[in-house]
Structures are given as C-alpha cells and as structure tokens.
Design a protein around this nucleic acid. Structure first.
Length: 257
DNA sequence: ATGGTGGCCCGGCCA
C-alpha cells in the first residue's frame, strides 16, 4: 500500500498538477491539505474518474483537508467535535484498506508570541486526544499531513537562522513528540537519516533552488505499519515546473494487504 | 530571515 500526503496550496489552482501526479505516482491513499475549497466545490468527480473515492472537509477559506483512496473509504469523520474545530477544518479521517488514515493540517502558529501559536500547541494536544478516543495504537493507523513543525534541526536548512521562529521551537517539538508518544513513528525517517531533505520551500526569493526549506510534511504510522515500511520518497519533481505548490508530496510504501 | 511570491478574490489576509 502506497500512502502519500501533499499540501497542494489550493486544489482549485492545483487540480491539473494533482491529476497528473495521481496518474504517475498512483498512491493507494492520498491525504491533501490546504484545498481552500468548500465541500460543495470539491472536485470528487475528477478523482472518481481516476479511480479514487474521496472525503473532504473544508469551508472555502485557507484550510480544507481531504482523503482520496482507491482501496476503499469508510467511516469518514470530519473534525474533532471539540474545541480544536475553532481553528477551522483541518482534520478528516477515513478507513482505507484496513488502515485508519488521518489527513491533518496543523495550525501554522504565525509567530511565537501569537495566540495562534498557543492554539497550535493545543491543537496538537487535541489530536493526541482524538487518537486516544478513536483508535488503538496496536492497529494500523496513519496520521499524515502538514504538521508545520520541523521535528529536528536536521529537518531545516539552517537551525541558527531560525532561532525564535515558529516550526522549530522546543514547545512545538515537544507537542509533536507527545503526539508520537501515543504510538506513532515518522515513517520517512525509517528510510532516510540525511539532513536537508525538505518537503516545503517558500515561493519567494528562489528558496527552492537555493535549498532553503524544511521537512514539515510527515507520514506518522503505528508500529504495525512501521514494521512493514518498504520505501519512502519526497517527490521534489512535483515542486518544479508550471504552477507548483510550495510543498512536495511525501510517499511511503507498506507491504500490507 | 523577511515579506522579494502565490492564492484567495479585489483589499487585505494567510502562509
């Protein structure tokens, strides 16, 4: 089973790139973030034409998350049903081919002194609470998306340049580690130990070409899946060319089913 | 490292 995650930065603007990508990457499951669409505008037909069922949770503003699957899509759950929903539609879950899959778009935080930063930390705490309430860590569970946290210094281009900035603070990393403490492994790191392997590069100032980026898009999986992980990839080609997202897709392959 | 880009949709907001 191939599970992928991609922050597309507007599915309306990116639909041709996403369709093209689905045709050559052929993930079994794709988690999408930042669709920026209302549910009524979600292009479910375009995806069904490619063999994918889909579930979307969005309000037409800057959030919006989806799960696409060609191995079944059952028991869709949108949002938390709790305080974290005040941060917008940033979570949708579905069971795909026996795996409980979550597409998450963690709040950005904006700046360390912002109320949004506090809300980001709380949101990660609520995500752990949701897993505790709805899943078993002994089952196949995947939490995929844009976490807006670089887990370690090797996940950013220059740690010294980012001191005091969001995405790299100790509190954010502790909150992410606490989520993983429920029983989740960073699947990409099962396959690669190198630094400077990024998933996001700012559009501005040619940062992609300068290697100025961060690894903030993650596929977190329970141990039963981690043991079956047979490959991983950041598809940097999808960050190139005409009208790319500012994020690259992350793919992870598992020997299951 | 900020705001030089990009997306929303037309004046700022968000990343």
């Amino acid at each position: 089973m191939r599970i992928a995650t991609w922050n597309v930065n507007s599915l309306k603007a990116r639909l041709p790139r996403v369709e093209e990508w689905l045709e050559y990457a052929r993930p079994d499951v794709l988690c999408i973030q930042e669709t920026k669409l209302a549910d009524s505008a979600f292009p479910a037909m375009a995806f069904s034409a490619l063999g994918y069922e889909s579930a979307h949770h969005g309000d037409g503003r800057w959030n919006g998350v989806a799960v696409l699957s060609r191995v079944g899509l059952e028991d869709v759950a949108a949002g938390f049903g709790g305080p974290a929903d005040s941060e917008g539609p940033r979570l949708v879950a579905a069971t795909c081919g026996g795996v409980r899959v979550h597409s998450v778009y963690v709040p950005n935080g904006r700046s360390v002194d912002s109320e949004h930063y506090v809300a980001k930390l709380a949101w990660l705490g609520e995500l752990r609470g949701l897993l505790e309430a709805t899943c078993s860590a002994g089952d196949p569970v995947a939490v995929c998306g844009d976490f807006n946290v670089a887990p370690e210094d090797r996940d950013v281009w220059d740690p010294a340049a980012l001191v005091g900035e969001t995405h790299v603070t100790e509190a954010e990393r502790v909150a992410l580690a606490a989520l993983q403490g429920w029983g989740l492994v960073d699947a990409f790191r099962l396959r690669y130990q190198e630094d400077r392997l990024f998933t996001w590069w700012d559009y501005r100032a040619g940062n992609f070409h300068k290697g100025i980026g961060m690894r903030i898009d993650l596929v977190l999986v329970t141990e039963v899946l981690a043991q079956r992980c047979v490959g991983a990839l950041i598809d940097r080609n999808a960050r190139k060319g005409q009208q790319p997202s500012d994020h690259a897709p992350v793919l992870v392959d598992f020997e299951v089913g």
